[in-house]
């Protein structure tokens, strides 16, 4: 492994200060993604700022019934939290659908937000990848792209964001709390990640030195679900995933939240589908119409064209389950 400096700051201010002043600094949480990428020579930090000693590992109540989740809460702890399971089942289910038990025991909420794509061309130093090496091209465009994105893509990059947790957070209108050299700011999760455009190497809205400190979950009344479709029963990234929350009153949809994973470079809030559904009937035809409206903007390639149909089917199935209380599995 390439040599690097390792520091473990005693408090948040020190962590932010080090990261803001040391060029090439990276925060280390559970290390489940960063360390892998360092071994592969893709991430090359000069300074690793280990933040796991910071007091950011609790889940606390917010006034009004929401929850504040510290950035260092482990994925397995969050998934098992009684309040999360009761109020935000979509989040607990998404967390448990990700990775393996061992990885979830290590992975942190903050790290999960910032995990990087699993595009195989990103991982292979011999391949062209604009995200890894800006300007080198994208081998995925005409290569193996069965797992790649169909929404929000550019000619520079079609990689997906791999997180399950983030898809649930996108549906839940979560807000990310960020501490930087200039103080604290709050960013809606759906604004945290950027689309690739011509600069796929810039993946988030975070400035140098900014540290994710917490994620806030506003209260939600609607029932919610996470559905992940993948190539094997466990330990695989989503081909398509759906995080949904639905409330129906008198046959009319009064609340709808829909987010998609596995289809876009960021956790994809399906606003167009929501618009089609809100105030309308909760039936199969409406679900499909809404899904198709969302996917009308998809950019399909021979390898990943199936994702449009798969996403439509998965959205319809998830909403059907939520509307009828049927157990999807």
């Amino acid at each position: 492994m390439r040599p690097f400096a390792y520091v473990k700051p005693a408090d948040i201010e020190a962590a932010v200060r080090v990261a803001a002043t040391e060029p090439g600094a990276k925060f280390l949480g559970g290390g489940t993604n960063l360390v892998d990428l360092m071994r592969e020579g893709i991430e090359r930090p000069d300074t690793v700022v280990d933040v796991t000693g910071l007091p950011l590992d609790t889940v606390t109540e917010l006034p009004g019934g929401g929850l504040r989740v510290g950035a260092l809460v482990r994925n397995s702890v969050l998934a098992a939290d009684r309040r999360v399971r009761a109020r935000y089942p979509v989040l607990s289910q998404a967390l448990l659908a990700g990775a393996s038990a061992q990885l979830r025991n290590m992975a942190t909420v903050g790290g999960n937000l910032l995990q990087r794509t699993r595009c195989p061309y990103f991982y292979d130093g011999a391949a062209a990848c604009n995200k890894r090496e800006p300007g080198s091209g994208c081998d995925a465009l005409d290569g193996f792209n069965r797992g790649h994105a169909i929404l929000g893509v550019s000619e520079s990059c079609i990689a997906t964001h791999p997180s399950d947790m983030c898809v649930a957070l996108a549906a839940l209108d979560a807000v990310v709390e960020v501490r930087g050299p200039d103080g604290t700011r709050r960013v809606p999760l759906t604004d945290l990640h950027r689309l690739p455009g011509g600069t796929p190497e810039i993946e988030t809205d975070l400035a140098r030195g900014e540290l994710v400190t917490a994620v806030e979950l506003p209260p939600i009344a609607a029932a919610s679900r996470y559905r992940k479709v993948r190539d094997r029963a466990s330990y695989a990234f989503a081909l398509v995933s759906v995080a949904a929350a639905l409330q129906v009153r008198d046959g009319e949809i009064t609340e709808i939240r829909l987010a998609l994973g596995g289809v876009a470079p960021k956790p994809w809030r399906a606003r167009e589908a929501e618009r089609v559904l809100l105030g309308g009937p909760a039936d199969e035809a409406a679900f499909r119409r809404a899904a198709e409206a969302e996917l009308a903007q998809a950019t399909l390639r021979p390898g990943n064209a199936f994702k449009a149909g798969l996403a439509t089917a998965t959205i319809a199935a998830t909403l059907r389950e939520l509307s009828t209380g049927e157990d999807l599995r």
């Binding site: 195989p120 061309y121 292979d124 011999a126 391949a127 081998d139 005409d142 290569g143 193996f144």
Partner: peptide, 9 residues
């Protein structure tokens, strides 16, 4: 990869 003969996965 059909262009490079490289194993992608």
């Amino acid at each position: 990869d059909h262009r490079t003969g490289r194993i992608v996965n």
